[in-house]
Design a protein around this nucleic acid. Sequence first.
DNA 1: CATTAATATTAGACCACGCTAATATTAGCG
DNA 2: CGCTAATATTAGCGTGGTCTAATATTAATG
Lengths: 111, 111
Amino acid sequence: MHAFDILGDPVRRRILELLATGEHSSGDVVAVVQREFGITQSAVSQQLRILRDAGFASVRADGTRRIYAVEPRRLREVDDWLDRFRAFWLPRLDALATEVARGKRKRRHRE
Amino acid sequence: MHAFDILGDPVRRRILELLATGEHSSGDVVAVVQREFGITQSAVSQQLRILRDAGFASVRADGTRRIYAVEPRRLREVDDWLDRFRAFWLPRLDALATEVARGKRKRRHRE
DNA sequence: CATTAATATTAGACCACGCTAATATTAGCG
DNA sequence: CGCTAATATTAGCGTGGTCTAATATTAATG
């Protein structure tokens, strides 16, 4: 499933925004999303599963809690996809920036 | 409409990829997308309209042709959204490199 | 002008996706 | 062990979004 298909849903985006600030339990995520979107625990749990299955998030158990963390790989795909457009808003990338950009390119091929 | 809602569709993404390489007429876009996705001229035209309306592409007339070009604004929104995750794959980018690589902070507030 | 080429629009059909409601699972705790 | 808390799963429903088919628009051309 393409990264953008996952990010197309506002609930999933909100969950990722939350996880970007650090790990959170399923319950935490449910609380926030429920307050902001008014949906069920079930719905949030389903979205968490989609994020897991798609490789956007990882889980570990802590007793009866599930602690979710953001998994950057798929998000970097999006970042990479944007490369082809960067010339539009970074018209004249100078040497240092090129260096930084090159570092990224190598990394992309390593993995 | 959120930028990611637009990018959630594979046909729209393909069109933007094409436009990233330069301007193209509607017919050009139709040809490529039709070959790769097997959908109608109508469907492609509808997607082009969605891209226009959402501010991802602009058009100008050339006789009976419509020439489409990528409009970077909305794509930069996506780039900006990714900022909150960059720490995950750029763990120790120093201040200058960050500034150059993403020379964005200032721009973001200007516009 | 009539005709053709290029593109856009409209109406309607269908299907994937996200939701709810109900139920299952698993861990901790007395 | 039974009970509760935390979370996950399943079945089924409704709807939004994307498609096709048909038609409309607009410009060039003889």
